[in-house]
Design a binder for these strands. Structure first.
Length: 684
RNA sequence: GUCCCUGUAGCUCAGUUGGAUAGAGCAUCGGUCUUCUAAACCGGCGGUCGCAGGUUCGAAUCCUGCCAGGGACGCCA
């Protein structure tokens, strides 16, 4: 089993070292700093100020200041005093003189805070000389195991896999940047029925010369073929049941419709509802029949395929038997698995290389195979699982259906592997949290699995299903090709890069002084832009919601896209080259940021909020908090850039200050995109 | 039948765990280029936050019911 490029440990040490270099005074983000001041006052008023402290946040509107504390209103209730009075009391006791102007009390009791310009400038000047842009590392580092990507090696990856991969990778990078210990573990699907299919296909249908020439495409073909045949036979056997169901539903609906109406309004309403449900069910049955028909048609429309299908009537059970033989240690099947796995894995690696994804460990399902029997035994021994209808089940409070950990035929399941995995991870790494970046449809599985994990001896670890929604096409249905096939990841990336090349070329051709990029550079840029666009689209949407996939939107040069941010970065960079500025020299040469114009101040404040944004990402594992921040930062920057001449500033002091603001902006965009796994280019 | 998620501007989406007049982008309309990349900036239009109740100083956010879409529901992963 391939595993372990011990990068974690090295990265961790590096981080600790860089913290030491920062000096003794720990940096803190603005919000934490404010909260710690409020905490002192609030502890006198309530027992646990934590909840109140979460009500201190950036002001919703600039006219209210920079930050606002909404704590006086809820306190009004608990303390039985008018909120404004409480607000005044808190403000009186608060020691914020070094950070803020005098606090203002507004409306029903809002406390509005405005940061002192001196304080802003002092912070910013520290960030200029700091490799980490003033972002502090966690004062209480935790250990996280991140479980993401986890594709089935035998099946081609599709658009759903990239969402897990990209979100997981972004969380991994962000947590690590903030000083946590992170272990990324790719839980590959390398042991399931899909290998039974390939093995069966190989034994009966392989084109040996094709396999020798290009093994992976041939294995894909075999997978697809066997899958089609299995679908065909399943559809055929399901047909009578489906038709019966349709008949029954239709008849029931018909008789309901023919019932004479009564005067009882409630009964009529109930009848109507019943009827609608029946019609819905009938429609579902119709759809199932249509989909079964489609599966049948795939085979019947092809006479050769048809013949193959009749020759392999028991293919579904035989595939399961091949899988079972593999699991039993059958030498032939094991040999084939050993031969196929690395080939399939290499294919996936090509994609990971393309989109810059690495894992620390890769313990796939097969790694846990020998531990599964023991998991079930332990559950039985501890009285947590019992036999029911031939299967071994864990019955959990609050769930109707049990979690089955061994089938009646003796085989183990996904749930069994998950339990073995959590045991292994706890023993191996002792994490504080394990995050599973998996699509939302598996929500109930995770709820049960987490409940079972708590029962079997891990009550304290934070187990979190970082779920995400479906990627949809323009039609609002799961993103597929017109013919209904899932879209391969490689083709998807190719198209994005190709379209990015067009966008980059058009932009370059339209430059006022003529194009300045060669073909190779355009290609290099298109690579960063195309891949960045795909990743950013996944990350900028709230992960829990579905989103509509659109090349045009994700590659747009305006709006909340990676392309716009990459362009902005390149443009800031363009200022330095235009002015022949050696920015490193300026940074180290004692030049300082000053804040005079309103636009300068707005940019300064936004720059200092970077670490707040990162904290928001971690809070609920939402990378879109970072994309929104970067987009906002960029907008504020362009507003500054429009109003404040940089290279043409009147005085050298102003020019240098503004150059440093540009520099911090560029570095923040670059670092932010880097945490999202997206690259910047120096010009575009 | 049970359970879960979603419903916000014409479109695509945010909305920081109950806060001030609900926000962006796209589209559209109008301004700003002899001046650091106009791939930009500034402004306008656009909303019964699915519907109806309830909780309270205050609701897109919490509760109840309904409507619509999606998903999951004992031997797949």
């Amino acid at each position: 089993m391939q595993c372990g490029r011990q990068r974690v440990i090295a990265g961790f040490t590096r981080l600790v070292y860089s913290r030491l270099l920062q000096g003794l005074v720990p940096l803190m983000n603005i919000l934490s700093e404010l909260k710690s001041r409020f905490r002192i006052v609030l502890s006198e008023l309530v027992e646990d100020p934590a909840e109140l402290l979460s009500m201190i946040r950036p002001a919703q509107d600039a006219k209210f200041g920079d930050y606002q504390a909404n704590i006086a209103m809820p306190l009004g209730k608990t303390l039985g005093k008018p909120p404004r009075e409480i607000a005044a009391e808190i403000v009186g006791k608060l020691d914020l003189n070094d950070i803020c102007e005098a606090a203002e009390i507004a409306g029903p009791g809002f406390i509005n805070l405005r940061l002192k310009d001196d304080w802003l400038v002092e912070r910013l000047n520290r960030a200029v000389g700091d490799e980490r842009l003033g972002v502090a590392t966690a004062s209480d580092p935790r250990t996280y195991v991140l479980d993401y990507s986890s594709p089935n090696v035998a099946k081609p990856m599709h658009v759903g896999h990239i969402r897990s991969t990209v979100i997981g990778d972004a969380l991994c990078r962000t947590l690590r940047y903030l000083g946590h210990r992170v272990i990324s573990d790719n839980h590959l699907g390398d042991w399931g029925t899909q290998f039974g299919m390939i093995i069966y296909g190989y034994k009966h249908f392989v084109d040996q010369s094709a396999y020798e020439a290009a093994p992976v495409p041939e294995l894909s073909r075999l997978y697809k073929l066997v899958n089609q045949l299995v679908d065909y036979h399943n559809a055929q056997s399901a047909f009578p049941t489906l038709e019966n169901e349709l008949r029954a539903r239709s008849a029931a609906a018909e008789s309901l419709r023919n019932q004479a109406p009564t005067d009882d309004k409630a009964a009529e309403k109930k009848k109507k509802k019943e009827l609608r449900k029946l019609e819905e069910k009938a429609n579902e049955a119709r759809e199932s029949i249509a989909s079964a028909n489609a599966k049948l048609a795939v085979v019947t429309s092809d006479s050769q395929l048809c013949e193959t299908a009749t020759q392999h009537i028991n293919i579904a059970t035989n595939v399961l038997e091949e899988t079972a033989k593999l699991h039993r240690g059958d030498s032939e099947n094991r040999r084939l698995w050993d031969e196929f796995l690395p080939k399939c894995r290499d294919e996936i690696q090509k994609l990971y290389d393309r989109i810059d994804i690495e894992f620390d460990f890769e313990y796939g399902e097969s790694f846990y195979h020998e531990r599964l029997a023991n998991v079930v035994e332990e559950f039985e021994k501890d009285g947590l699982a019992k036999e029911s209808e031939g299967a071994i089940c864990v019955f959990l409070d609050g769930f109707d259906a049990p979690m089955i950990i061994r089938k009646k035929d003796g085989a183990f399941l996904y749930a069994t592997t998950d339990l073995a995995t959590v045991q292994f991870r706890m023993q191996e790494w002792c994490p504080d949290a394990i995050l599973y970046v998996v699509d939302h449809r598996q929500g109930e599985h995770f709820e049960k699995f987490f409940a079972a994990a708590k029962l079997c001896g891990y009550p304290d670890v934070e187990l979190c299903h970082v779920s995400f929604g479906t990627v949809l096409g323009d039609d609002g249905k799961p993103f597929k090709t017109r013919s209904g096939d899932t879209i391969g990841l490689e083709a998807l990336l190719d198209e994005a890069v190709q379209r990015a090349y067009t966008v980059v070329s058009q932009g370059d051709d339209a430059k006022p002084n003529g194009p300045e990029l060669g073909k190779d550079e355009r290609r290099h840029i298109a690579d960063a832009v195309g891949h960045g666009a795909i990743k950013y689209a996944d990350l900028s949407h709230n992960r829990t919601s579905d989103y509509v996939f659109s090349y045009d939107k994700m590659l747009a040069l305006t709006g909340n896209t990676a392309t716009y941010l990459q362009y902005s970065y390149a443009r800031v960079n363009g200022i330095f080259s235009k002015g022949a500025v050696d920015i490193t020299k300026l940074r180290d040469g004692g030049a300082a940021i000053q804040v005079a114009e309103r636009a300068e101040r707005a940019l300064a404040l936004e720059l200092l909020r970077f670490s707040d944004a990162l904290a928001d990402v971690i809070e609920d594992y939402r990378p879109n908090q970072l994309t929104s921040y970067l987009f906002q930062l960029t907008k504020v920057f362009f507003s500054f850039y429009e109003q404040c001449p940089v290279l043409k500033a009147d005085e050298e002091k102003t020019r240098n200050s503004r150059l440093l603001l540009c520099d911090l902006t560029a570095r923040t965009i670059s670092q932010g995109l880097n945490l999202l796994g997206i690259k910047v280019v120096e010009r575009m």
